[in-house]
Lab assay of single mutants.
Amino acid sequence: ENVVSAPMPGKVLRVLVRVGDRVRVGQGLLVLEAMKMENEIPSPRDGVVKRILVKEGEIVDTGQPLIELG
């Protein structure tokens, strides 16, 4: 699984990683606000951040690609 998608609609509050960062399974990639709750979106696997597909403040839909892992 190379693309991390939004599990719910919401607003991207914070991106916690940068392109080139090594991440571990379960590590927070970004914080999504949904229904006034902050939800940290975890990495599904170990890898390297290849691309960040959203910006802070952006509104996303369920299933929208957020981050690509390499």
Rank of each mutant, 00 (worst) to 15 (best):
V17K: 08
G28R: 04
M8L: 12
G57V: 08
M37S: 03
G20Y: 03
K11S: 13
G20C: 01
V3Y: 10
L53Y: 11
G47S: 10
R24V: 12
P44C: 00
I41W: 05
L53D: 05
L16S: 13
A6Y: 10
V3H: 08
V19L: 15
E1A: 00
G63W: 01
P42T: 12
V31E: 07
L32W: 05
R18E: 13
E33V: 15
L66F: 03
A6F: 15
I52R: 10
R45D: 06
R24T: 12
L13M: 15
V15P: 15
G70F: 09
L69C: 01
V60N: 03
M35A: 03
R18H: 02
L29Q: 06
V31M: 03
P42L: 15
M37D: 12
M35K: 14
V54C: 01
V17W: 02
I59R: 10
M35G: 09
P42F: 13
V60H: 03
M37V: 05
G70L: 02
A6D: 03
D21V: 02
V49M: 02
E38F: 06
L69A: 08
G20R: 09
K55H: 05
G28Y: 13
I67V: 06
N39Q: 08
V17R: 04
E58Y: 08
K50C: 01
G47A: 08
V31R: 10
I59C: 01
G70N: 02
Q64H: 12
E1H: 01
V3T: 15
R22E: 10
L16H: 14
V19M: 06
P65C: 01
V3A: 03
I41V: 08
L66E: 00
R45M: 05
E40Y: 13
E68L: 05
K55D: 05
T62W: 07
K36Q: 15
V12P: 00
Q27K: 10
E38I: 09
Q27G: 04
K55C: 01
Q27A: 07
G28Q: 05
N39P: 12
P7Y: 04
R24E: 12
R14K: 01
A6R: 02
V48A: 07
A34L: 03
E40H: 11
L13F: 09
K36I: 12
R18M: 09
I67M: 11
V23T: 10
V54R: 14
Q27F: 03
G26Y: 14
V23S: 10
E40Q: 05
K11M: 08
V54M: 07
G70T: 07
S43L: 08
V25A: 03
E1N: 01
S5R: 02
D46P: 09
P44H: 12
D46L: 02
R14P: 08
D46Y: 02
R14M: 08
D46C: 00
L16V: 13
G47H: 08
E40F: 03
P7D: 05
G57F: 13
I41T: 15
R51N: 07
G70I: 06
V25T: 04
G47N: 14
A6I: 08
A6S: 02
E1L: 00
R14Q: 06
N39R: 09
I52T: 15
L32I: 15
V49E: 00
S5Y: 05
I59N: 04
G20D: 14
Q64Y: 07
E1G: 01
V23C: 01
S43K: 00
G28A: 04
V15N: 13
I52Q: 05
K50E: 11
I41G: 01
G10V: 10
R51L: 08
G57Q: 07
E38M: 03
V49K: 00
V49H: 01
R45P: 01
V4S: 08
G70Q: 06
L66C: 00
R45S: 15
S43I: 03
M35F: 14
G26T: 08
P7F: 09
P9W: 08
I67E: 07
R51F: 09
L16G: 06
R18V: 13
L53H: 09
V15E: 05
E68G: 02
V19G: 14
E56I: 09
K36A: 03
G20M: 14
D61Q: 04
K50A: 08
S43D: 02
R22G: 14
R18L: 09
R14W: 14
G57M: 13
G28T: 06
M8S: 03
G47T: 12
D61M: 15
L29V: 12
L66A: 13
V49S: 02
N39D: 10
P9Y: 03
V19H: 07
E1D: 07
N2P: 12
G63N: 03
A6Q: 06
V54D: 00
M35N: 07
P44V: 05
V12S: 12
P9A: 06
S5Q: 11
I52G: 11
E68I: 13
G70W: 05
P65Q: 10
V15K: 04
V19S: 05
V12E: 00
V48P: 10
T62I: 10
P9G: 02
D46V: 09
V60I: 12
K50R: 06
V23Y: 10
V49R: 00
L30Q: 02
S5P: 14
R14F: 05
P9T: 06
V3N: 06
V15M: 10
K55W: 12
A34N: 06
I41S: 11
I59S: 12
P42S: 09
I59F: 07
T62P: 12
V23G: 15
V48Y: 06
Q27T: 05
G20I: 04
K36S: 12
S5I: 12
S43A: 11
G28N: 15
M35Q: 06
L29N: 02
V4C: 00
V54P: 10
S43C: 00
K55L: 13
G10N: 12
G47Q: 08
V19D: 14
V48E: 06
E38D: 11
G10K: 01
Q64N: 12
I41N: 03
